[in-house]
Design a protein around this nucleic acid. Sequence first.
DNA 1: CCGATTATATTGCATATGCAAGTGGGCGCA
DNA 2: TGCGCCCACTTGCATATGCAATATAATCGG
Lengths: 159, 159
Amino acid sequence: MAAPKKRRDLREQAQRTARQTAGECLLFRVRALSRTLTSLYEEPLRPLGLKPTQMNVMTAIAARGEARLSEVADMIALEPSSLSRIVDVLRRNEWVEMLPDPADERARLVRLTDAGAALYNEAIPLWRKAQARAREALGPDGAEAFKTLADQSLSRRAP
Amino acid sequence: MAAPKKRRDLREQAQRTARQTAGECLLFRVRALSRTLTSLYEEPLRPLGLKPTQMNVMTAIAARGEARLSEVADMIALEPSSLSRIVDVLRRNEWVEMLPDPADERARLVRLTDAGAALYNEAIPLWRKAQARAREALGPDGAEAFKTLADQSLSRRAP
DNA sequence: CCGATTATATTGCATATGCAAGTGGGCGCA
DNA sequence: TGCGCCCACTTGCATATGCAATATAATCGG
């Protein structure tokens, strides 16, 4: 084949496979959904200055009362390095505080401050609004189906 | 109630609602799933120096052959500002190029370069591996269910 | 008890993402 | 025609995210 023809084939093949890929890719779908749902949750929380990601981290911390960073990272399937930065922001806002772990000097325990707990309680009703909108966006059946499959997939991960 | 008691109540309530929220939040689930699936796709693509997000953008561009940035942004539910930076990276790598849109001087058309098309074709078999692993991670039924609900939710978005 | 290995967290670097603001080109209507 | 408004992008700023490398502490074998 001559070079000009090869070049055209390359592009034509890319176009064909791209159309197929676009119609199937699971990653594209989960990322796109993540973006659209994120904005649903961001909006009601904005007045509090609290981002959904931060709220997710606070949820994990609050659920335990007090926890190691590594525990929190495991709970929410987040790399420790990412968690580290998010907790930085939460600390700057004085919504969480860190204590030494008496059992291990490498580790640090995090917990909500009083201000953090108060903020969290304020955030809950706003979260409920967002959650309701997300349920609508997925359709009631879709939301339940999604929750089930996500929980299965996330719990199967790790060992 | 005395102040000390109020403080304890605050934290107790936060803990109770946090446990409930952790068990229900759809956003947490979609973001966690997005993170775990992203790493599944990142690994096989790494040797090419291509990130999954970039591949998603190239897929949208390649599927059209040539498209306005705003069209691409709509196709993949991405803010124009975000797309702008991703396309910057693709241009630095000379995987895509921009042309003026003869119909509108504000707009710009993007398309794959020859190198970009070649890379894209190389990426496809690696993407298939990743897609297969993602399907496994979600379970075969889960993967289909997810695809269906994501497509519905994403198409219902916009008007 | 020491040295090698492992575990916990942080930091440097690069990309991903969105909002707000800015730039400049179309477009309708008086 | 020209002014005001809308549209397509880009940029500044801040957060989100992960990998690789680092510092420090625990732990396990010998």
